[in-house]
């Protein structure tokens, strides 16, 4: 069963002269154990695709299913709960609160969701795997770009989500860090059975993905 499925998705912004058809009849599905990469230039509709997939906005037409359940009827509060429990967002920046240490970012999650998060040994091994176990008492402002992004990934994985949606997660990283993040996404898919969807124009991630899609002018196609 697809963990995340988009059927015949259309998204239109504005009307009459300002009408823009951003997504055109998009069909997409992602399984467990899969690292899906969605490539496209700026303005192609990548971010809109990601926000609809994550339930942050509604499509003009079409249906989004998460773990087989349609989400269009969910209230705003239920969508918050869905994202908190099942979907993790990793963005290009602003992922971490600047006045909380890396460790306190996890405490904040505990304050909101006190069940189903990683236990301390799982968190320790995740931080070790990400190479940031020594940085738990540091504030985001004291970390490099790569360290910040790895801490953001750890923060996103802390709620043990089944789906990880990432928007340009490697945009500000050097090639070594891109390799690390790419390998991490791949291992999360294979070893922890996560469904990973990354939208980006960064071709350096291509080697790590199981499936590669391309969005151009609002249309999506699977690259062979």
């Amino acid at each position: 069963m697809s963990v995340i499925e988009l059927r015949n998705i259309n998204k239109i912004f504005g009307n009459k002269i300002s009408r823009v058809h951003v997504l055109k009849n998009i069909n997409f599905s992602a399984e467990n154990n899969q690292f899906n990469l969605v490539l496209g230039p700026s303005g192609s509709g990548k971010s809109t695709f990601l926000t609809i997939a994550g339930g942050l906005q509604k499509p003009t037409s079409g249906q989004v299913n998460i773990e087989g359940q349609p989400i269009e009827g969910l209230s705003s509060k239920d969508r918050d709960t869905l994202r908190l429990n099942k979907i993790a967002f990793i963005l290009q920046s602003y992922n971490l609160l600047p006045y909380l240490t890396v460790k306190e970012q996890f405490v904040l999650v505990d304050k909101v969701k006190n069940k189903g998060n990683l236990d301390s040994s799982s968190l320790d091994s995740l931080l070790k795997k990400l190479g940031i176990e020594e940085l738990q008492e540091k504030y985001p402002g004291e970390l490099s770009g790569g360290q910040n992004q790895r801490a953001a990934i750890a923060r996103a994985l802390y709620t043990d989500p089944s789906i990880i949606l990432a928007d340009e997660p490697t945009a500000s990283l050097d090639s070594d860090n891109v390799k690390e993040v790419g390998s991490l996404f791949k291992s999360l898919a294979k070893e922890q059975h996560k469904s990973i969807v990354v939208v980006t124009h960064d071709l350096r991630l291509v080697d790590f993905a199981d499936k590669i899609y391309e969005i151009l002018d609002g249309r999506m196609k699977l690259k062979e």
Binding site: G54, L56, K77, D80, T81, L82, R83, L84, N85, I87, A88, F89, L91, S93, Y94, N95, L96, L97, P98, L108, K111, V112, A156
Partner: peptide, 18 residues
């Protein structure tokens, strides 16, 4: 000044109430 951080938290499902 914190609005972008808060937007990310909202995207991650942290309720506005918090």
């Amino acid at each position: 000044q914190k609005i972008k951080n808060y937007a990310v938290l909202r995207a991650q499902g942290i309720p506005a109430k918090i």
